[in-house]
Amino acid sequence: MKRFLLFIVFLAAATGASAQNVRVEFRIDSSSYLIGDWMQAHVRVSAPEEYRIVFPHDSEGFRNAEYVSEDSMFSEESGGQILYSKDYTLITFDTALVDIGVDIEYYKPGDTTAYVAASPDTRIEVRLVEIDTTETFKDIKEVLHVPTPWWVYALWIIGLAALAYLAWWLWKWNKRRMEEQPEPEPEPEPEEPPIPAHIWALEHLRSLEGRKVWEAGMHKEFQSELSEIIRGYIERKFEVKALEETSGEIIWEMRAKGVESQLIKELQTALECADLTKFAKYVPDAVAHRSGLKTAYYFVEQTKGWGMSAEEELAMERAQSQPEPEDDGAAEQEATQPAKPAEEADDVR
């Protein structure tokens, strides 16, 4: 009896020791495979709960087989041990009887040493494809033509139709835009060169003189037009807004432009006479009218070269001394056009 009890104690101790071990089982679905076929392998590891088990994730962990893929791992507790199970897909390219197995790495608690538990080998047969050498060689198979489904054609038709519609719409839109655009304006005719201020003034003065305005008793009209010609000339020649300025302001501007003081004095007299006639019912006598006209001519003649260089002045005098052609276009026509009648000028003002 004592011996029996000792045996039981020894057995229990042996069982407890084995319970601390890691056991690996390796099983394959079949024992015979064609070369290149995938093999389904099942790995079961039984280990204590506190052990850390590392399943292989590449071909390194398998003996005589190549790793292809793996499934998820399952675990369950069983009698104080944890039972881990995992399925793998393996492959082998050696045609022979092959012993395949797996090595599982594990770590004990508080120990960084990597221990390995190896499964027993499982023998399988890997076969070659059987070739019937008695048959003749066959030609390479034709390329397989996958039939095009109907909806691909439909899509093509719809796409082409949309493209055609877009092209038509663009054409219409462009056509409408072209129609809406105003016709290009005709290129402006080149402007006639402006008539020089002194020519303009002299022509108007001659016209005023020729019409015998004051001789006809229209003193106010004569002086108004005379004043307007003088101011028009000053506006064109000196680029001052003489038509919008009073006589006093014009005189001031002439001084600022550096016109000769005697000339300014005479101009002032003429403008004052015109102002008196225009605004104070003054009736100048013949001498005053002639003097005003003479002053205007003189002022224009004396200032026509103002602001010009000596060469420009000479060129202008030469151009004036040349006889004008008989039919000389609009410039001459405007220059020789009689000045606006005094009454009309008065109305406009």
């Binding site: 009073t246 006589s247 006093g248 102002d275 605004f279 104070a280 019912k281």
Partner: peptide
């Protein structure tokens, strides 16, 4: 002055 001129207005 017995008459108005534009200067007066301005």
């Amino acid at each position: 002055r017995g008459y108005v001129i534009p200067e007066d207005i301005r």
